[in-house]
Amino acid sequence: MATRQGQALGRLAVAPAVAALAAWSIVPLALAIYYAFLHYQLDNPDNTFFAGWSNFYYFVTDPFFAKDLFNTVALVLLVLAITIAGGVLLAILLDRPMWGQGIVRVMVISPFFIMPTVSALVWKNLMMHPVYGFFAHVWRAFGLTPVDWFASIPLLSVGIIVGWQWLPFATLILLTALQSLDLEQKDAAQMDGAGTVDFFRHITLPHLMRPITVVILIETIFLLNVFAEIKVTSVGGLAGNLTYLVFSQLNDANDVGEAAAGGLIAVVLANLVSAFLVRIVGRNLEA
């Protein structure tokens, strides 16, 4: 049993981290609420006054808001679809006995370690350039007209890049989970004459449900905040999301109040999502 002295020391040891994180989570929030009700523009700070709800009103009625809200959700769903479907397939594939498994694994997970600005620019130029890009060459080789990715399907293009970055994450987690699937269970199922499809449906998939949930929830947190990929490929006007809209309110419009109001809307959105995550991770913690 922990001693009283140890307990006191334990509380003391936790204090700095709690204080730091409390400051980190509370001070920006308090200030964001404050600025959100303020008419405050960086290029005219002397004309600052209480603005009521007007910042929220202007942010929501901004022509970009509806589009960017849609883009935010669409991008999350698109990337989730790519990474979950691809991740399950890749994990099952990598779980097979083969030669050079370690090397294949390294190749598959590498994209996850590429910084977002690099993957965005490499994809936009070397891969997706409408004339010189690799895809353009492939398309022409098949006698097709190359696609002008970022001009004609900007959201899908960003989705492909982000999906490429996050597919390794899903694969890695699902593979880790697969490898903990009991070997005996596999053998038993085989002896019972279960086919590949049956085995997948009744054993593999149920076993993967929990890790899939974890992947969905964690990716969602990060995907709601995709920013660098949109900024450096310069598609903020075509396929911007809420994060980008807040950035442009600050950066292009110099409007602190409206940007803060937009930020608060993003906070509410993220909290709706994360309420689920905390609950599920919490349940796993108890188990």
Binding site: P28, L29, T243, G262
Partner: peptide, 23 residues
């Protein structure tokens, strides 16, 4: 406490951008 710490990670950067920028 652990769960609360986790929840601070979910604060979207867009929400913190303005205050941090101004601080």
């Amino acid at each position: 406490k652990l769960l609360w710490m986790l929840s601070t990670k979910m604060m979207p950067p867009a929400g913190a951008l303005i205050p941090i920028y101004l601080i």
